[in-house]
Design a protein around this nucleic acid. Structure first.
Lengths: 340, 340
DNA sequence: TCTAAAAGGTTAAACGATTACCAATCGATA
DNA sequence: TATCGATTGGTAATCGTTTAACCTTTTAGA
């Protein structure tokens, strides 16, 4: 089967304690014995048994990452950034999908706690996290939130510069001569709220009155990209077009943009000649459409990296309540394409 | 901190062995004592320590899933199907990305073996897996391959019906009147080989001679979707267009289709009037382009599920060499859209 | 009533590491 | 020379379970 530390010790003619000390550099060992141990290790192709070590040390070296919706590519990019940083420090992310369902999210968290992760990174489905307190109880477990701000629970938080991103985008539309700019969001969470605020600020600063008929919210979030094409944002777009006055549409996130663009295309609207279009969140497919679509690009990889760094910091320093919580904003940038 | 089995035993007034037996239903216990134990469990909010159990039982209840390229959505769908089945049997997938690099793949496998997974599902980057024998050595570890056939190592294998899929697609193009049909593949692996064979069979059956100038292979695989737009398949498409005779292009996979379509669009080619287009592998963005793009759709979720089922079977029966290896084909279907 | 078998429960040895504590050796110093 | 401290190594307890083996009772059948 597999060699254990005992057999290494026997082959090297020392005790298991010494082998352990050599392996972990946790005590001085005479060079001679050290090499004897090392030779035994390579000879037996010995690999430490992580379960035994973890049991003894009381840690798992895994960080649970609870993702709101794996169908949304955005979260995958976060996961990649996160993984990169965690691996560097010997930790490993454990990915799990909530499919935009609160009850699945809770189930996932329970599961991860049961498998004794050392930390939790959460991209929330909805904002309420009062349940987390009960589940975590009084053990040391750092929690980092990304993408949406939770309520009822405190932890580190990493968000994009939502307000500024939306502001810049709408300002750009205004600069191109648009005054009748509509906003199509989706679920009304803290993040979407900030984007709406940016949208309003751009209008107000330009002296354009905010027309609440131009703001469409409350879409149902779906897991299926294909369903999204004819989902709420599709019909909301049609409603806006029927007003007859809108000359530009800004979509509040990547999921909403699917329905918006599908509608524009199916209604035969000339983009950008008749209606200009822009969206929050960049995505690969925005480059493949005719016209290609302008976007406020987040840096999801960066968000993941920051989340990883903060997690590692907490893990190493066990400093969760020493200095309050981090509240990081990762910048966005405007990518202009053909749609405006 | 957290309650252990000992405290449950003390509270219930029994031995730890009895608690364990109640928990695992591994021995008869008088109903009365059983409820005493159960009450103690809920009262202390006792959760079993998975590391201790795993150490004792010598299993981790995790299955490593080594993905060739997480930027390719196809693998994500496989992962979802896999996860679904594994969770049902109390196992959990551990996802890890090889970024299309053989050396990262090997690193990943080593990592997973070191963390003592109970099984391995692999979507290979390249086909050579002779290294696996050495790494696994002589322990019981089921290995299931998906998407590409490995060489140098035997395991269960789950593939799409590549030959038939390509055959049907090209046959359809021929039925629409095309005789000058080109094929753009990418890396020349077993899977792409099968698709080429399907392509050739369709032509031959229709009495159309195979023109080897129409077959472009050997593209460099990239992880970046954006780079792929102007990668090898882009220039291969231009070469084909310069021949002046091609009336239809069939793309061998979803990655190649990105470059092909980008080229068609940037060269101002009318699709499907001047050149028809079709691709192996369905993807969300194929529905958002103008025109939308026809595809041979795999069922990645189904592939993942089958992989999960087979893995579970092996795990339960420990029957890896009793009955040879599975060799499953998951069907494809033609999705016709505007591009042909 | 006696015996065998079944049932209910406990003891203690693992699993494979880590680590506090102890013991021996050796120079160097007072 | 006796002592001190550093260095090197070993002993054994521990982490939280599982499980084989064993000991008592009960139960059932004759």
């Amino acid at each position: 089967m597999k060699a254990s530390i005992k057999e290494v010790a026997r082959l090297a003619g020392v005790s298991v304690a010494t082998v352990s000390h050599v392996l972990n550099k946790t005590k001085n060992v005479r060079p001679e014995t050290r090499t004897r141990v090392e030779q035994a290790v390579t000879k037996l192709n010995y690999q430490i048994n992580p379960m035994a070590r973890n049991l003894r040390r009381g840690e798992t070296k895994t960080i649970g990452f609870v993702v709101a919706n794996m169908a949304n590519y955005y979260y995958l990019d976060i996961a990649r950034g996160l993984e990169q940083r965690l691996l560097k420090s010997g930790y490993r992310p454990l990915l799990i999908d909530s499919q935009e369902e609160k009850h699945i999210e809770i189930e996932n968290v329970k599961n991860l706690l049961a498998s004794a992760v050392d930390g939790l990174v959460i991209a929330p489905t909805t904002e309420d996290f009062s349940y987390l307190k009960l589940l975590i109880g009084r053990r040391h477990l750092p929690v980092v939130f990304v993408d949406r701000r939770p309520t009822g629970f405190e932890g580190d938080l990493i968000l994009a510069t939502n307000e500024q991103g939306a502001y810049q985008a709408v300002k750009m539309l205004i600069a191109k001569g648009h005054r009748e700019v509509a906003f199509i969001g989706s679920r009304y969470d803290s993040t979407m709220m900030e984007r709406v605020i940016g949208y309003r600020r751009a209008l107000t600063e330009a002296g354009i009155p905010v027309n609440t008929n131009y703001i469409k919210m409350g879409a149902k979030v779906s897991v299926s990209l294909n369903e999204l094409r004819h989902g709420t944002s599709f019909s909301q777009t049609r409603e806006l077009l029927e007003l007859g006055s809108v000359t530009a549409i800004f979509s509040g996130n990547n999921l909403a943009s699917i329905g918006v663009f599908t509608c524009l295309r199916e209604m035969g609207v000339q983009v950008p000649q008749e209606v200009a279009f822009m969206t929050f969140d960049d995505d690969f497919w925005l480059t493949m459409t005719t016209p290609s679509i302008s976007a406020v690009a987040q840096k999801p990889g960066e968000i993941g990296k920051v989340a990883g760094d903060i997690m590692i910091e907490r893990l190493l320093k066990q400093a969760e309540r020493i200095e309050g919580y981090h509240n990081v904003r990762v910048s966005t940038r405007l990518i202009l394409r053909e749609s405006c």
